[in-house]
Design a protein around this nucleic acid. Structure first.
Lengths: 207, 207
DNA sequence: GTCTATAGCCAGATAGAC
DNA sequence: GTCTATCTGGCTATAGAC
């Protein structure tokens, strides 16, 4: 095991603090509105110091995405360990976790249109790597659930994958939370039902 | 009927041209990235002239939202005329129209986090008025469909309303279109199915 | 590596001539 | 009402002292 100097540990801790701030600010305001100055002020360092750790605002966002994808992968790994759960239950657990993160105000939100940011993300190995890891595991669960007759096999598996990813930025969560009529847990269960069971009526006993 | 001078007609035409440009740019880039200068250049007038018609960027966005809500209300009115359709079919038709507009690149997208914009929208009578009109009609259809056993009565009606509204900014549409495997019509039918019937398997013949 | 200070740029909004 | 020219301010990013 390589020795890590005290100085390097301090740097790691600082980088972690930066990512916590970026994550929170990205969740609160989104990429376009968040400013690097804000991040620096939130961490309590100078803006120029931030740029020694991350060479651009886009890289800062990418690091935040890597961070949240790592959290997702940890969740997924924990789910894999419990082999008794059916594929569809594992997928529901992932969706539940995703919505919990969003309701907790910890889900970074990036604009889909910004081409500079897109290019930075697509050039970021760490990000792409995690994104593919998540997609691979979820894709396997989806295929298995369809084969087992738990998920609608008429839907393309990519549609199901994208739909699950989209739970991370579903505006309905925020609207219901703003309404104040439901607890976070209730909101999640309601949306889990509307997502998997649909808006239409289901005869009692349907899968 | 008040006489409208030629000069006033020219102004109305110009305002309409402005709104068309704003609508398109809001759909393409979103509010934060769109610039007033861009809008002016697209219309072919000077930025200062734009500010004679609309006193702020937020008001510009609000006017675009009023415009799209008017289009939605026209659709809804046309649906109301066809009384033979069941409530759930009318709701599906609205969702279908909403997704068509988004796929056509004509759905303005506003950030949910921007507080200045939110305040401007909530202070805009024309916007709130249309939003309530749409919500009222859809709300009635939802209640009727639930009473008729077509929609899941266990779901709060506001959840269904919000879920339908959210079709206007569903990222899955863009992801599938970018994939290139499906036509716009196929994408819409697939997402209509996943929205109303859910991701889970349904026994054949279920409503 | 950290800071202060600033370059360089571009946004939203306005002044004032026509 | 339209234009050109400009103001004002905030942004990303960097230089250079410590």
């Amino acid at each position: 095991m390589a020795r890590i100097s005290f100085r390097e540990q301090v740097l790691q801790v600082r980088e972690e603090a930066i990512l916590v701030s970026v994550n929170r600010l990205l969740a609160e305001k989104g990429f376009d509105v968040m400013t690097v100055e804000e991040v620096a002020a939130d961490v309590g360092i100078a803006k120029a110091s931030l740029y020694k750790h991350f060479t651009s605002k886009e890289e800062l966002a990418a690091a935040a995405m890597v961070r949240v994808l790592d959290r997702a992968l940890a969740q997924i790994e924990a789910l894999q360990a419990r082999a008794e759960a059916s594929p569809v239950d594992q997928l529901k657990a992932v969706a539940r976790w995703t919505m919990q993160v969003q309701l907790a105000g910890e889900m970074p939100s990036l604009p889909a249109q910004n081409s500079v940011l897109r290019a930075a993300l697509l050039a970021n190995r760490a990000y792409l790597d995690r994104l593919m890891q998540v997609s691979d595991v979820l894709g396997m669960w989806i295929t298995a659930a369809q084969a087992a007759g738990q998920l609608n096999a008429a839907l393309p598996s990519e549609v199901i994958l994208y739909t699950l990813f989209a739970r991370a930025c579903d505006p309905v969560l925020g609207l219901l939370k703003a309404g104040g009529s439901y607890s976070d847990e209730q909101i999640i269960e309601i949306l889990l039902s509307s997502c998997f069971d649909g808006l239409s009526y289901r005869r009692a006993g349907a899968a």
